[in-house]
């Protein structure tokens, strides 16, 4: 008989799916996620022999192949790692795994393709409901919680003004996230707050930021760079106008887009902005007393050094 565990226990040890971005442009997100997990005593077992989730590229050509690719990740987590919770910190991966879950549950044609390809590839077919996909925000929020987190804070973020930017894929489309919008304690798709909650616990002041789920133009970067730059510039300027010193991110695509287009906006449009862009795991790690280098802060394009010195958040490694 399967023993039902509460989320705080269930999420203490999870299968970790970093995805491609966290091995490349989002390396600092991977580094800081692992460091925060270690500091909090949470265990991450990387999914064995994982593959690309299908991202946007495959999804745009053939959504069913994308679902298969995501289902293989879930299958490996269940059958090779023996886990029933998969944590994906990248919004794109998280979204695609959730979408795969939804499609396998609701679309027989997709299920047929996934069954066929899984057999052909020689691995067990993932069946809907075998695993639960969560984001890094769910992981920390539910495995640790604000009360415990506040006890673990060693260096408060001391009123650091933060605009929390969730991007578009963390909450949309709503029907693939059935656990959200379930009342108190659950995440909201229209007004997400998990990152706000965690960083406030670490001492940050969350500014009122109206573009927290606005599109950053990430998918348009190559086809229409100017629109992407303007979308990002507007997000960054809105964060500054709201009084933010830092934009906290929880997606490697959003993060790279913000960093890249912040520079491009200055070069192409002559609009310089000063807000610093950091992963929420880096901010949380600082608050937990993890050394900045272990959080990959030096790997960010956006230079946080002056702000961290000003806020006395840098200390010896």
């Amino acid at each position: 008989m399967t023993k039902l565990l509460s989320k705080d226990k269930k999420y203490k040890r999870v299968a970790y799916y970093p995805g491609c971005a966290l091995e490349g442009t989002g390396k600092a997100y991977d580094t800081s996620t692992r460091a925060v997990g270690k500091q909090l005593g949470l265990k991450l077992d990387e999914v064995k022999n994982w593959n690309c989730c299908g991202a946007m590229e495959v999804k745009n050509i053939d959504p069913k192949i994308q679902t298969y690719l995501s289902s293989r990740v879930l299958s490996n987590a269940v059958n090779k790692n023996k886990h029933d919770v998969v944590m994906a910190p990248c919004n794109g991966c998280y979204h695609n795994l959730k979408k795969a879950e939804y499609d396998l549950e609701n679309d027989p044609a997709t299920k047929e393709v996934v069954d066929r390809l899984s057999t052909k590839a020689g691995h067990k077919t993932y069946e809907a409901g075998q695993a639960e996909t969560i984001h890094a925000l769910d992981w920390i929020k539910d495995a640790i919680g604000e009360e415990e987190l506040s006890r673990r804070v060693k260096h408060s973020l001391k009123g650091l003004k933060v605009a929390n930017y969730y991007g578009c894929m963390y909450t949309r489309p709503r029907h693939i996230f059935p656990e959200k919008d379930q009342g108190p304690g659950s995440e909201s798709t229209s007004e997400p707050h998990f990152m706000d909650d965690l960083l406030a616990t670490a001492g940050a002041v969350n500014v009122d930021f109206p573009l927290k789920t606005a599109c950053c133009g990430g998918a348009h970067t190559l086809s229409d760079s100017d629109t992407s730059t303007k979308l990002v510039l507007n997000i960054i300027e809105a964060a500054e106008a709201a009084g933010a010193e830092v934009i906290a991110t929880e997606c490697p695509t959003c993060h790279s887009g913000l960093e890249m287009h912040q520079i491009r906006a200055e070069k192409v449009l002559g609009r310089k902005t000063n807000v610093v862009i950091m992963y929420f795991t880096q901010l949380l790690g600082l608050a937990l007393g993890v050394a900045p280098r272990k959080l990959g802060i030096h790997e960010n394009v956006s230079d946080a050094t002056d702000l961290m010195i000003d806020k006395r958040l840098l200390w010896a490694t």
């Binding site: 794109g92 499609d103 991007g167």
Partner: peptide, 20 residues
């Protein structure tokens, strides 16, 4: 404006491509 500027740009939206 961005979505209208590039034909079929909607198909490239990160979050909301039609599920089926």
């Amino acid at each position: 404006g961005g979505k209208m500027q590039v034909a079929e740009l909607g198909e490239f939206c990160c979050s909301s491509r039609p599920i089926r």
